[in-house]
Each structure stands twice: as C-alpha cells, then as structure tokens.
Amino acid sequence: MILITGATGVVGRETVRLLVEGGAKVAAVTRDPHAELPAGTQLVHPAKVSALDSVEAVLLSPRAAGSTAVDLLAHARETGAARVVVLSAVTVQYPAGHARFRQQFHAVEDIAKGSGLDWTLLRCADFAANTLAWAGQIRATGTVRGAYPHARTSTVDERDIAAVAALALTHPQHRGQTYLLTGEESLSQPEKVAALGAALDRTLSFVEAAPDEIRRGMLAAGLPDEVPDRLLGSLADYAREAGPTTDTVRRLLGRPARSYATWAQDHHAAFTAGGTR
C-alpha cells in the first residue's frame, strides 16, 4: 500500500489517480470522509494513520504532514515501508522569497533523509494551478492586477509532478535522487495571462499594481499573512533573476513537460462564468 499525504491537493489527488489506475493500493490521508477520490482508495483520517501496518511507500507533503512528519515516517519504517518521496521546492536549491519558507522545506527534506527510508526529493517550481487565484478577476473584468510583472518562472504542471511522484513511489531506482521539476519555458505573469486569453479566445490584460495593494487585497479576502508573504517575496526575487528551467520532467517521463498553454487550455472552464474546473 502507498500512503499519500495531502491527498486532496492538486498533486496528491493526481498522484492517487495515477497509482490506482496503475493497479496500486492507495491510502489517502484526508480529514474529509467524503473526499472524491478514485474507487478503491482507502480514506484515512490523519489521526488514524498509525493504525496502518502495510505501507510500502509514502508521499510526504510538508504542508499536509506538518509536525507529524517525524512520527509518520518512523511508524512507516517500523511497519515495513521502504521509500519516502518528498514534495519540496526549488527555493531550497535556488533561494527566492523569505528564508523561513525554504527552511520549512529543507527541514522536511532532512527528516526524510534521517528516517532510515530510501528517499527521493522533488523540488518543484511554482504550480500552474496557482494561477487559479486569478479566476475571479478574469471572469469579472478580464483584467489581472498583480505585482512584479517582470518576474519570470518556469511554472510546472502539477500533473507532471504527480507523474514523477508516482514513478518514484513505485520504482526503487530513484532512491537517493533529488529532482528539480520545472516547466520548459520561462514566463512572466503577463505572458501567462496572454496564454489564458488564448485558451479562452478572449482578450485579457495584466495591470501592474504595487505590492502593498496586492497584499491588502489578499488579506481583505481572508487569506492568512503567509500567502501574500510567500507570493510577493518570491516574485520580488524572480523579477531580479528568473527562476530555474530544467528538462528533468522530459528525462524522467520520456516526453516534454506540459506547457502552461496546455494547462490553460485544459483548465479553461475554471476561468469562465460557470467556474467549473
């Protein structure tokens, strides 16, 4: 059985789907007893993970596992697990944004390395799904307001991360490897908005706003301080120096990484009046 933490997140959910379709038994850690996951997936409340005794591998999401990561991996090892795959961030290797956020990822990587399990680290660029935060603005006005328009990142499709995660969870030859997962093209925010416009067959625009204005808007929308801190801190640095671009997805999966334009086309419904993903 493969244990997936963060199973209802954009990477975890897709990883569950791929593993189940591949014939694996999957236990998905979630607080939602009605989570919509593939048939045959075992739903496990975080408080009940210690009752599992047949886990072979673990997908560790730092945000989902949090302070329980040490105990979770210790229990997994005691009950026969062999592997842990960690969802980490490119900022561990290419610092950007506030140090405390990359230190959190680095700490979880260290926990995995010290767990006694074979480990694989997936250091990911910003997810394409992060731009779903623009959906409301695009539906309402066709304009995205944002800070640091010149910031450039090689956004990665979360489905590609999941495909690599499923590979590493089921194939031992990936043990001890650190993979930097990005898309293959460096894009600014206005270029991403243009790609969404092409997918929607609609003219969209990006309007630069001061970082403080964006922060106030995010806080007014009820988001915790951590969210604008993560976003604006990283964008400020990426405006000075673009984030990394790799061909790791291509090398591991034998095909190109999905482009942001492809992601936009596949998710265009989220940006239309109905808002269905």
Rank of each mutant, 00 (worst) to 15 (best):
L60S: 01
L37P: 00
S54P: 03
R102F: 12
G183F: 07
V49C: 03
V108W: 07
R102K: 08
Q137H: 12
G23E: 05
L132Y: 15
A199H: 08
E109S: 09
T248E: 13
K25N: 09
L253S: 02
I4P: 11
G217A: 09
P95E: 02
G183Y: 08
P244R: 00
A51N: 13
G40C: 08
V84M: 11
Q137A: 14
S186G: 11
D71A: 14
A81Y: 07
G97R: 04
R139C: 05
S115Q: 07
G197T: 03
T8H: 11
A269E: 15
A257Q: 02
G222W: 07
L219G: 02
S186M: 13
L223M: 15
A199L: 10
R251H: 08
L204S: 06
Q265L: 14
E14K: 02
T5V: 12
V84Q: 06
A220L: 09
W119L: 12
L121A: 02
S188H: 07
E78M: 12
R139Y: 04
G243T: 01
G197Q: 05
A242S: 15
G233K: 00
Y260K: 00
T178E: 06
A209Q: 11
E158L: 02
A39I: 07
I2M: 08
T178A: 14
E56C: 04
G183K: 01
C124F: 02
V84H: 04
E14Y: 00
N130M: 14
V20L: 14
V55E: 03
K192G: 05
P172E: 14
L43S: 03
T41K: 02
R215W: 11
A81V: 00
H267T: 01
A199F: 13
L122K: 05
T141P: 01
S54W: 14
P228D: 07
R63F: 14
A151V: 13
H150L: 10
A257L: 11
E213T: 11
R175P: 03
